[in-house]
Design a protein around this nucleic acid. Structure first.
Lengths: 194, 194
DNA sequence: CAAAACACTTAACAAATGTCAATTCTCCTT
DNA sequence: AAGGAGAATTGACATTTGTTAAGTGTTTTG
């Protein structure tokens, strides 16, 4: 059952198991959604109405500038996807979010997130931890981007998210690293020699 | 008075003015600290015990790898400085934070931050907004880093933080942009011609 | 199944950035 | 005010990365 993945996830972030009543409130706040590969959760110019919890599948968030895709995030099972800026400020997004595989998602609106924060302490705690982890991950990524070579960023990605290598095509990995597919191909060739 | 800067800051982020009683609780949680230029708030290897509110002065957060400084953040008046990961997880930091000018700071520990979140609703609201703005700023920076040339990142920085140009030496601006001082010098020369 | 679309690699060349060294300039300290 | 340290610039050269184009292999889809 789709909601069970969410229950597990919430319990991971809280010391005690969430009560049936509280989880009921939580699960009622979400809408299940199936997304086929290449379908969009968000298109640039629209407001990001939903944050998605990925029960199954994989997604990406990217901008499109002069016909070039720049992938900012990947998301897989048990990750959240949304453009936070657009989602909370209700401003038009500059990003697209689409499915890289068929996805089972649980969608929630900003209003419902706020309500849950006020009414379900365990949800509030989880949301805070989520935000915090997200901050840390982004700080690491900024540090990598300004201080490492493309080769080292690639090696770091293999270490931190090895599953990405199996799951996403190399041109997307390259985009995520901020380089061209040709550069990544050369880097891989060079690394293979060692 | 140092605390007045903090009061103004909090009021910016909340619809109503913070009460005297609540502000008293807040201000009691901070310790004033004067830091001379080049003094450290945090040294790599230590746990980041304090988050600093900068009343006056300027600071930077940076890593030191093979003798090369990589500046992750600058901070000026009314900004917060800390290594969030180390501060909340109480793990040793890989970053240094030091003063680029003589600074007037207000320091707070993690414990006190938690207490304020629970006891002062206005503080809690402000903290949430702070985290959120920080997230957005970091997302922009990641997007810039992976999708823009050094020249465009520099132009963006001039637009978004023109005060940095007057205030920080170019070798530090270069480090913040993830390039060498020589590269920045050449980029500036090229831009001057236009 | 066949055609088309896409992903990956390779090569040649261009452009951007890094490295090293020398020079000048500015600012700080004594 | 003089000397010295650090900051910025410049030039020559190396390295990395981007660009373009071609070729091969794989996947998708009608």
């Amino acid at each position: 059952m789709m909601f069970e993945a969410l229950r597990k996830y919430i319990n991971q972030y809280t010391s005690s198991e969430i009560s049936e009543g509280a989880f009921d409130t939580v699960s009622k706040s979400f809408t299940p959604k199936h997304l086929l590969k290449r379908q969009f959760l968000l298109q640039a110019g629209d407001v990001c109405k939903y944050t998605a919890f990925i029960v199954k599948g994989a997604m990406r968030q990217y901008s499109l500038v002069n016909g070039v895709e720049n992938i900012v995030y990947f998301g897989i099972e048990n990750w959240w996807m949304s453009d936070r800026e657009s989602f909370t400020m209700l401003t038009p997004s500059q990003f697209n979010i689409d499915a890289l595989e068929d996805c089972d998602l649980l969608l929630i609106t900003h209003d419902k997130v706020q309500l849950l924060k006020e009414s379900v302490p365990q949800w509030n705690k989880m949301a805070a931890q989520m935000d915090h982890r997200h901050s840390i991950a982004m700080q690491k990524r900024i540090h990598d981007a300004i201080s490492l070579t493309a080769e080292d960023r690639f090696l770091n990605l293999i270490k931190s998210n090895p599953e990405f290598m199996q799951r996403f095509p190399q041109n997307m990995i390259a985009s995520y690293l901020g380089i061209t597919p040709e550069s990544l191909s050369r880097i891989r060739k060079k690394l293979a020699k060692k």
